[in-house]
Amino acid sequence: MSLPPLGLSLVVAALATALSVLVGLPLAWLLARRSFPGRDLLTVLILLPMVLPPTVLGYYLLVALGRGGPIGQWAEAVGIGRIVFTPGAAVIAAFVASLPFLVVAARAGFEQVDPAYEEVARTLGRSDLAIALTITLPLAWRAVIAGAALSFARAVGEFGATVMVAGSIPGSTRTASIAIYDAVQAGRMHDANVMAVVLTLTTAGILFLLTRLGRGTGW
């Protein structure tokens, strides 16, 4: 895969957002609707990437995903091969950084759903999973879209953790935010200028569409 920085940024952010939705929705539901030992600890762990400096996050990821780290060793053993300094590492970095935004928004959305809807659904013979998918999720739809938009925005803007764990390899891991930094460092102000404007307009356009979708027509 060889992509110009902007294309790479959008692909990485889209994959990271998709992962955040897949992993984050069940987590958000669990935190909103179940009490279990360690729930507060889990909340803190999920939120931590929001407050940690991205370089610290990147450092932890480097330790975990690197050749000597537990995930890195496992990936080598099962034949996935090296993770760090690949596009996959950029996706993982953006995913970890953007996950809390999805979880916070979706959890708040799930908590807004009147539990009576879920309770009546339980008396109608449906499983918890069916209820979560057909009642809770559709009723919290707007919050989930808002969370996905925030998550995507954070993923596009990801810089520090990505540099640490994926580096800046042209066409492979050099996303737009990194390319802009590199261009400024090299004194290529015109390149930086063009990329900054295009990145701003593109992401603004995508966020605008997501916001419209989230507002929807309602029921």
Binding site: D114, A116, Y117, E119, V120, A121, R122, T123, L124, G125, R126, S127, T134, I135, P138, L139, W219
Partner: peptide
């Protein structure tokens, strides 16, 4: 669990699912 009891429940405020039409509400169970 409630889903195995075969006990129907009409809530005080009815809790009709707002995102489903009338037929889909009734067909939910």
């Amino acid at each position: 669990p409630p889903r195995e009891r075969r006990v129907g429940y009409l809530f005080q405020e009815y809790a009709v699912f707002p995102h489903l039409d009338v037929a889909r509400n009734i067909a939910f169970g």
